[in-house]
Every structure is written in structure tokens, then in C-alpha cells.
Design a protein around this nucleic acid. Sequence first.
DNA 1: GCTTGACAAAAGTGCTATAATTGTAAATTA
DNA 2: TAATTTACAATTATAGCACTTTTGTCAAGC
Lengths: 209, 209
Amino acid sequence: MVVVPPAKQASAKPYRVAARELLRDTLLDAARELLADRPWAQISMAEVARAAGVSRQTLYKEFGSRDEFAQTFVIREGARFLDAVERAIEQHLDDPRAAVAAGLEVFLSAAAEDPLVALLLADDGTGGMLPLITTQSRPVLLWASARLGEAMRAGWPHAQEEDIELLADTFVRLAISYVTMPRDAPSQTAAAAAALLSPYLERAMVSRV
Amino acid sequence: MVVVPPAKQASAKPYRVAARELLRDTLLDAARELLADRPWAQISMAEVARAAGVSRQTLYKEFGSRDEFAQTFVIREGARFLDAVERAIEQHLDDPRAAVAAGLEVFLSAAAEDPLVALLLADDGTGGMLPLITTQSRPVLLWASARLGEAMRAGWPHAQEEDIELLADTFVRLAISYVTMPRDAPSQTAAAAAALLSPYLERAMVSRV
DNA sequence: GCTTGACAAAAGTGCTATAATTGTAAATTA
DNA sequence: TAATTTACAATTATAGCACTTTTGTCAAGC
């Protein structure tokens, strides 16, 4: 009697969720391509929908408003960088200082090369996305800090919760600061910041009986 | 024979320098009063000069351009806060952690109450002064960091030059970050940041043979 | 050394009309 | 059911235009 194994699921997620994510990704990707040409203020929601091959109403239904879409976009682009940062940290779990240095360097290098980041920083006036990482950056900050916190918690399970939160928050704040007003070459900036954080970090990452 | 002591100088500075400083102060003070009413974008150089009782050309001769004037203004206002920070630090030279906590708390509390800071942060569009502490804040950052560095060098003569510079730079970056996007109440934010910096600080402030 | 008066170039203002965009709601299609 | 189409009011952008203000720099005068 031959046992037929169940067909391997293409994804663990039910169709509805997968379809929704696909939709969101398609829309956000379309926005990114449009942003290669002109600033956010000059891109309409209709264009984004058209570029994604979707109706405008689907876009609104999914994201609510233009501002929410922009917010989500910035966070999703940020996720690209944060992924890289977390990978860098995971490779240095035995050495917190090296982890911070590598994570920050990866971030600053990637951001410096990214044309989207350059565009975002260049655009001065209203209607752009710049405020989302300066004066109205609470959502981005909270999101990035929370995600980074999770990664640190996973890598250093002995660390105290408050230390994790403080370190993640500070890491993100400094990272934003360095991106908007560079200090040095990415590697030097990262090394300096890591040197600064490491004494605290090393205390925190060790279990305190 | 009676020795007549030399008349006490009103100031150690020669007249030319003193007059120049008086002129600058008068103009900058006039600008501050005008800023109580309306945002910077709606204040002309002619108004500033008139309010200071000086001709427009004198203003231009002294500051060069509108942007330079704004830059100088922001730095001079920043000096008010930095004075307070330095005093707070000087009162805790024996305890670097308390020094950082007190300095940051003084700054954040004062900034939170200051109507000028509120106006500066509120004003979104172009022509305002906000970019001077976000995307174009290099001058402010360099100035504040250098001044804070001097104060630290004076208070902790054993510290290494690189440590001073790194700490001052980081302090200023975090302070700006906290002002533009608050984390907590000033006292809590200051305590957290001080806790984070203190392990490094304490190593640095002690002479390393 | 400061002020006055003058100036061109640039930037802002008020106004109009027109067009585009946002956000929402319905009816429609697959 | 989920997305599309169509429709719509309200807000906002765009363009043209004349006009005013402002910036930045002169030279002349006190």
C-alpha cells in the first residue's frame, strides 16, 4: 500500500493572506519604480495603481490613504535594510561590539549607495517622504526599534528587556542621524558608534544573576 | 606717591570687536522677537533691520545673506541651551553619568518649554528653519559638538581626545533626535541615555595609563 | 562706518480659470 | 466574493498674468 504524501504547500499561508501580500508587494514595487524617475510629490495614486496593473480603488481599499501608503512604503523599504542589519548581527552573536559595528556599517553602506535614499534625502519641500524619517518618524522609529529588538532578543536571550529596548532605540536613532547627516565613511562611523555602545552592550548581553 | 590703578576695562575686547558683537546681538535679538509672532518665512531682512534700528545694508554686511543669518540665529539660540547643559555638566564632574543625565535633562526640558523650539519644529514647508537641525544640520552639529567637547575637555582633563569627540558628537545627535521625536519625559529619556553612555564614559574619563 | 537711495534679478502674491487628484460610493463584472 | 468600472464632490495642484515684495549689491553722502 503506497502512502501518498500530502502535496507540499506552496506556502504556509492561506490563499487569502498570500494574495493580499502579493497585492501589497506589487503596489509597493510599482511605487518604487516610479520613484526612480520623479519625487513622491509628483506621483499620483492613479499612476501607482496603473503601474501595478490594478484599479485605483483596490489601492485605496488596501492602504486607506496616500499618506498611509507612503508610510508603509518607507517602512517596507526600511525592511530591506533592516534585513541586512539583522543578518550582520546574527553573524557576530559571540561579539556584541562586532555585531553593532557590522550591522551599522551594512546599513550605512547600503543607504549611501541606494538611489532611493538619495532621492528621499534630496527632496526638501512638502508632500515628500522626508518628514517620515525626520519630524514624523515615530512610526518608522517604533517599527524599526521593535524589529531590531526582536532580533537582539533572539540572539542574546540573557539580555534584559529594558536594555534591549534602549539599545535598539538608540541604534535606530543614531542610524537615522548618520544617514541624514553623515559623520565619516560608513566603516569609521560604525566602528566609532560600536565602540561607544559596546561597554554597555557587553554588560547587558551577559546574564546578570 | 599714590599709584593710580588703571581704569578697569569695561571689557577685555577692543572697541571694534565689542561693537561688532553688540550689533550682531541686537540683530539676532530683533529676529527672535519677530519670530514670536510669525514663522521665519514671513519675516523679511528689512524688518529685522528695522526692528534692530539699523539699516538693511548693515545687516547684509554683517551676515552676508538671509541663509547665513538664519544659520547664525539657530546656533546662537542653541547656545542658550548649551550654556545650561554645560553648567549642568560642571556640577557633576565627579560623576560622569549624572553629568550626562543632568545635561540632557536640562536640554530636553528647556527645549520642550521653549516656544521658539515649538515654532521651529512645527514649521514644515520650505523657507523655514527646520532643515537647519535636520537635513542641513552639519554646521549646528559641528558647532555644538565642538563646544560641548571643549567643556568636557576642561572638566575631565584626563580623557582622551577621541573619546571626547565621539561622546560630544553622540550626545548632540541624540539630543537632536530626542527633540525632534521625543521618546519619554525629559527626565526618563535623559536617565536612559545616561545609563547607556555611562559605561563608556566612565572608562574614558579615567586616565588610562 | 553707517545710512540712504537706487537698482536688476529673483521670488512671492493675488487672482483667475482650468485641470488633476483625493477619497468615497455606487453599480457592474468575472 | 473581490476587483473593476463609473461616477461624483471636495480638495488641491497648475498655469497664466500682473503686480508687489524681497534679495543682494551698487555708489553716493553724512
